[in-house]
């Protein structure tokens, strides 16, 4: 295991870079996913249709296909970006479909009577949304949304393996091919690095779930 302990600084910077991919992916997919969810529940049929098609297409397509399409396809039509940008964008697009479904199912879990009651005592649309519907929906959104985000953290390893530079995978490549270390201890270090992201996230989710759990 000397390969890992002698190169702690390398692993640390790789870890931070991998963590960065996760965080950008999280911010991006939450924004895009919320937007798609808003489309899916909106009263406007064409937006609903757009949201539904987006979710159907993206959810059934492997992340790697999205990633390859961006990295190899987009340059063909003159869109050139670094693999980092392409990788994070693919992660955001792929995860947004799952974020959308988590949010939508949360909203649908609030019974219609709640909103009807809110309307009948004279609350406006935004009042009923912010005071009555969302606080209840939020509680049932948290568990599935948390699982989606953790799955996204794990999927960020795909982006890393594709080769964005500076992350845990490039630490692996650097140590094994350039410095000639044996692969097994180094990949163990990389795996531990990812576990350091996913296991605390899972523990935090379990804690939050208990906090917001409601018996309906």
């Amino acid at each position: 295991m000397d390969a890992v302990f002698n190169n702690m600084d390398l692993f640390w910077s790789g870890f931070l870079r991998s963590l960065g991919i996760c965080l950008w992916g999280m911010v991006g997919s939450l924004i895009l996913g919320t937007f798609i969810a808003a489309c899916r529940v909106s009263p406007i049929p064409s937006l609903r249709w757009f949201g539904t098609s987006w979710v159907t297409l993206v959810r059934n397509c492997p992340l790697t296909v999205v990633l390859f399409f961006m990295a190899f396809g987009l340059p063909e039509i003159g869109i050139n970006q670094s693999y980092y940008v392409f990788g994070v964008s693919a992660l955001v697009i792929y995860t947004s479909a799952f974020v959308c479904e988590a949010i939508r199912s949360g909203i649908n879990s609030v019974s219609a009577g709640q909103a009807e009651a809110a309307r009948s005592i004279g609350l406006t649309f935004s009042q009923s949304l912010t005071q009555v519907v969302m606080p209840q929906a939020f509680r049932s959104i948290v568990p599935p949304l948390g699982s989606v985000i953790i799955a996204m953290f794990k999927n960020s390893a795909v982006v890393g393996a594709f080769g964005v530079g500076g992350d845990l995978w490039s630490v692996y490549k650097n140590l094994t091919s350039a410095q000639g270390y044996d692969g097994l201890p180094v990949i163990t270090g990389v795996a531990v690095g990812y576990l350091c992201i996913t296991l605390p996230a899972a523990a935090f989710l379990a804690y939050t779930e208990r906090k917001v759990a409601i018996a309906r």
Binding site: K154, A157, T188, V190, A191, Y194, L195, T198
Partner: peptide, 13 residues
């Protein structure tokens, strides 16, 4: 908690 792509690569290594 382990990303699948790491599991696959780990088996290979």
């Amino acid at each position: 908690g382990l990303p699948v792509i790491i599991s696959i690569f780990y088996v290979y290594i």
